[in-house]
Every structure is written in C-alpha cells, then in structure tokens.
Design a protein around this nucleic acid. Structure first.
Lengths: 106, 106
DNA sequence: TTCTTATTTGGCAATATCGCCAAATAAGCA
DNA sequence: TGCTTATTTGGCGATATTGCCAAATAAGAA
C-alpha cells in the first residue's frame, strides 16, 4: 500500500475505531437524543467518571462529538449526526449473521 | 448500563471495531469493487500473507465479508455492502475537523 | 506419492487499549 | 480566602491487538 493511501485509510480507521467500543458507541447513541454532561453520562454508563471522560476525549479528538463548558459542567453533543447511520447497517450485519447461524443449526 | 444493553452495544461495537483498522478498511474498500483472493489482497496491501489472512478472518467472523474456496485459492467478497456508507460519513468528519483546525489557525 | 503453491494457524514479542485510583485543575459559593 | 463539586489528567496493572516467522493444512500437478 502506498504511503499516502496508507495514511488516508489510517485517518479513516481512526474515526471508525473511535466508535468501535461499547461505551463509546453508547455515548454516541445517547448523544443522538440530545446533549449530556459528563455526570449524566457517567451515571448512565456506570463506570468511573475518569473512564467516561477519557472516552469522551477520544470521541472529541477525532471530531465525532464536541464539548461546551457551562459553568462547572461540560456538555457534549454530536458534531456529525451521520455516524448514526452506522447503527442500521450494523444491525443488518448482526441480523444476517444470526440467520446464517440458524441455517447451520438445521 | 444494564447487562442486556451492554451486550447489545458490545455486539455492535465488535462489528464497527472490525472496520477500525487501516488494513481491514482497505480490504473492505477493495472488495467493494469486486471479489479478491488472499494473494491479490496481500500484494495490494504489502504485508505478510499471514497477517492479511488474519484480518480477513476477523472481518469474516463478524459477518462483514464471506469467503469461498475455489481450488487452491480462497476468494473473499463483501457480505453486507452497506458498510460502504461509512466512508462518506467518515470523510465528512475528516473534512469538518480540518475546517475547524483552519479556523483555529487564523 | 512427492513437489509446489495457497492459505491458515501456533507462538511470540512489541505495542496499544482499558479501567481504576489518586491527584490536579476549574468553577461556584460561603 | 477556603470549601465543595465537576472534570480532566498522571500513572499503573491487566488485557487485547498487531505483525512477523515458522509450521500446519489444503489443493493441484508431476
């Protein structure tokens, strides 16, 4: 793979990889229904706040979400809503895989 | 996060994560233009064939691609074309991030 | 069968990710 | 100022990923 092609795919993969974690995907899903601050997300997720903050930082770094400090809280929201399109496709992969498994079981 | 919700997001994230690697994303992109065997992909990627085979195995395991042996070769193809939708969205994330960077530089 | 090619798998070292605790920073309030 | 809350960051151990080499497996040809 040529270096510039490699770099392009690395940049793309970095963004996709950011969503490739259960907690971060949950965050994206949650933010699709409106902004939330770290506290709220931490409560919904049930992990240490520092862990949630790190996941948020990663999503923000790649440009999927953005943050806005309001007083002592930091609110996050989706920067690019099209990432929600991933969900439907992923569900279809899961569904088809399940169907294939059923066929094998017959 | 409740256990069943956690499991759902874990299953989804696993599929997205499979695409979150430069080589695997390249493979998906390549296969979108038609099937290819391990040899051809290995040549295009420039890594060890064993490495490519492992990437293919992972993509196959999560249901994004499927394989078909024909003689001594194994051909791979996209199982779910909708994964290509990811590319446009990812590009828009990259583009917007670049624009934000430009603004900061002013 | 033996030889050659195509692919996968075992194993391992290097690196990256993850999640927690503790400490640092930021903001608001008394 | 000092106190409290919200968030981020340093650091670390545990785990996962990655890529290579070597060996195993699969298929075809001599």
């Amino acid at each position: 793979m040529e270096p510039n092609v490699q770099a392009r795919f690395a940049a793309r993969a970095k963004i996709i990889k950011a969503m490739g974690h259960p907690t971060r995907l949950f965050i994206v899903d949650t933010l699709s229904r409106g902004e939330a601050n770290v506290q709220e997300l931490t409560k919904a997720i049930g992990a240490d706040m520092s862990t949630v903050s790190r996941h948020l930082g990663l999503l923000k770094e790649v440009g999927i979400i953005r943050s806005e400090r309001r007083g002592s809280q930091v609110y996050y929201r989706l920067q690019i809503p099209c990432v929600l399109n991933f969900f439907d496709c992923v569900e279809s992969v899961i569904k088809l895989t399940a169907e294939e498994q059923l066929k094998l079981a017959e």
